[in-house]
Every structure is written in structure tokens, then in C-alpha cells.
Design a protein around this nucleic acid. Structure first.
Lengths: 124, 124, 124, 124
DNA sequence: GTGGTCTAGACCACC
DNA sequence: GTGGTCTAGACCACG
């Protein structure tokens, strides 16, 4: 089952979005697989020290994106296939790179300067 | 004078911050220069279709950072020198690159893949 | 025995309350009589496709209002007399007519239009 | 401005739906007109003794149905035209009369008795 | 035990 | 002042 030990709730960004992002990163990195069981709202809320409703909101978003399946009274499971995983990868990796490139271009940074920046901060 | 045609107000992020960011990107790219005249609150609010107070809030922030000079009843002008421009560049460019690198690293992307992504999206 | 064919579970209002209401309507219409036997929790839950606990909750409410008699392990029976039936009639018929009249009046419908509506939908 | 004195919150049905219904009845009766100003979330919540969020949920539903217009920081206004009013009328009047007829029929009330009930309560 | 909804209180962004 | 969001607690239906 997916592990939430590495998820440290930080301030300034909604908790339910941090949970969504954590699960999506698990999908991209391959830690989470199809048909994996998700912790129940109550269990995860107790573990993270937040309200069950906050977990519910995160799971609901993932369900709307067809990444998990929930049925009243039953446990929740991951529902992944190649297309969905690719979509999540696009959303996280490509969208991130794309918006970064756009911002840098608008500020007059050259491609060479951008690559130099990446290399510089990669080591830190 | 700085052009606001390229500024498309998007939802989810405060309008006054989008205006601030747009002007700051102009500073970094060199489109905006020292002593440039800024459009009046009234003119810009009409052009963007937002409340004059929202423009006021954006200008006030820039004024607090000493990037513009306003005198009640008179026009506002950019107030830039090498140090200020460098500070804005750091704030925008470096912060952007840094957060992007961090996100990609967290998802298991290698430095080489990251650079490839930058090059790929730079052309589009 | 009371028939539950006409009971169509609708969303938005608690199922156990819908069951209570259905039985009370049977009392008012005379379909349900004193000493009538009620279907067992298990049978009714299977018929309606809901959880036995939901039936239990409905029966418990009727029991609290002294409209049925239950003894653990044995069947449940209606327990009606003139006073109880009149009370239920007041609660349902009069409350229904009253709230309906109030709603229609509030919407600017005239008495004649209201009667016409009743006649129109009575035939369908 | 629309009046909420006649709205008595009752149990068993979500408060926000009762508020939605009350406003829709005002639309049908003509009490509420296009461009009418709505009470703010805070004012109405204080008046009804419920949480501002409950009002927000009701207003949000009406906004989704394009019956009101809300913009952050500004007041909320009704947004009505003939087609929208007709749609609301259908939804309320017909649904109300239909469900009332169905309930009365199920309780063994005759059409004549139903009409008598309507006339009786109409005068009160 | 499970998932889901309703109401509430605190807070934020905006005009 | 306005509208909007986030988190929380209590409750409901269900297996």
C-alpha cells in the first residue's frame, strides 16, 4: 500500500492538494500500482492528523480524474492504466517544465542561460 | 511605455499580483526602462476591466519596493538602476528555476532529462 | 400485509424516513390495519435493496411512536386505534395539504389555478 | 429586495436547499425581479441563524443555474429572463402539485376531498 | 468498519 | 464591506 511517511504537511498550500500531489507523484514514480488499496479516510486522517473530510476532498478529486475507485461501504482502490499514468506524468512533469520555460522566455532569458540555471540549482 | 496587451488575467491568482508580475517581467526583459511613464490607475483599470483599487494595490507594492515613483496627482514613473533590476531578476528568474528543479528532482527526473525537457519546450 | 411495491426510494431524503412515511400513509389510507403483520427486517431489506440496519431504524421510530409492537426474536405487528390513526392522519394529510397550499400561494398561484392543477395531475 | 421573513427552516431537508427553493418561489411569484440585489452571505446567515457557508452553498447552486450573478468583492444580483423564469415555474409549481397529488392519492383521499382540503387551508 | 454529505468556524482575496 | 476557500465535526447510508 502507498506510504505516507514521506508526506510532510507544509503550510501555505491546501492540505488536500498536497495529498493529491503526493499520490500522483507515487503514480509517476511507479510506487503506486493499479488495484493498490488506499488507506481509508479515517485511517489516513488519523495518521496525518487532519480531518477525514480533508482526505475525502483529495480522494474525490482523484476519483473525478478516474485515478481511484470508491464505492460506499467498500474500500477504495487505485484504477490505473497506461493512458492515465501518462496523463499524470504530463500534468506533473511536462506542465511544470512548460510553464517554467514560458516564464523564462518572457523575461528575455536565452536557452543557454536557462540550461545553465538548471545545472546550477541541480547540485544544491 | 509598457504594453499590457500580453497580460491576460487568469483566474485563481490575485489580479494585483499578476499585474505586479507582468511589470516585473518587463523590467527583467528590458522592455521597461528607467523613467518610463506608467499608465494612470484609471486608464489601466479601464483597459484591463478591473477595479481601480486593484491597480492601486499593484502600484503600491511596486512603490514599496522602490521600483516606481508616485506623487499624488502626478504621473508615475519607473525608478530603476542596476541593483534594483538585478534584485528583480533574482526574485523572478532564480526563484522560477529553483522551484522547477526541485519539483522535477522529486519526481525522479534526471538532470539530463530535465535539460532535454527545457530544450524541447523552448522551441514550441 | 402492507405492500411496498409503490415505494420508490428517491435520493436526498433519508431512506429510513421514506419507509416510515410509506407505512404511515398506509395507515391513513386504511391499507394497514391493527394487528397486521409487518415484513421482517431481512425480507424487507432484501426487497428494497437496502441495508437491514436501515429497516431497523425505521421500525424503531414507529415503535417509539407506539404504532408497532416488536418483541425480540418475534414478528412485528401494527398497533393501531382510532386516536393513533387520527394523529397520523393529521400529521400527514393536513400537513401535506397545508404545506402545498402555502407553497402555491407563495408562488402567486390563485385558488382556482391550484384546484385546476390538482384535477390535472389527479388523472395522470 | 427579496424578503426571508416567511422562510422557516424545517428539519429533515438540507437548509441550503430550502433557501434555494425559497428564492425560486420568489422568482415564480414575481416578488424577485431581474437585477434585484440579494442580501449578502453574512447578513442572511445572521438573519436565519445559520452559517454563512450554508448560504454560500445555496447561492452557488443558483449561480450554476445562471439565476444569479456573483463577483468577488461585489454584491450579488438576480439574473433573470423569460426563459429562466418559465423553467423555474415548471420545476416548482408542477413538481409541487404533482407530489402533493401523489401523496394524497396514496393515502386514500378522493379528488373531491383533496379539493376541499385545498379550499379549507387556502383561507387560513 | 466503509464512503459520503451537511453544517459550521476561521481565514483569505478582493472591491 | 463583499464573495470564496479550507478545515473541522457530526451525521447518514451502507457492507
Amino acid at each position: 500500500m502507498i506510504n505516507f511517511d514521506a508526506l510532510i504537511i507544509e503550510d501555505g498550500i491546501p492540505i488536500y492538494l498536497q495529498i493529491v500531489r503526493h499520490i500522483k507523484r507515487g503514480i509517476v514514480s511507479g510506487v503506486v500500482k493499479d488495484r493498490d488499496e488506499l488507506p481509508s479516510r479515517r485511517v489516513l486522517s488519523a495518521f496525518l492528523g487532519v480531518n477525514p473530510n480533508t482526505i475525502q476532498k483529495a480522494y474525490r478529486i482523484l476519483e473525478d480524474e478516474a485515478l481511484i475507485e470508491s464505492h460506499s461501504g467498500a474500500k477504495s482502490y487505485m484504477s490505473l492504466d497506461g493512458a492515465r499514468i501518462a496523463a499524470v506524468r504530463d500534468e506533473l512533469v511536462e506542465a511544470d517544465a512548460k510553464s517554467s520555460v514560458e516564464a523564462l522566455k518572457q523575461m528575455g532569458v536565452t536557452k543557454e542561460q536557462a540550461i545553465a540555471l538548471i545545472e546550477k540549482y541541480w547540485e544544491e
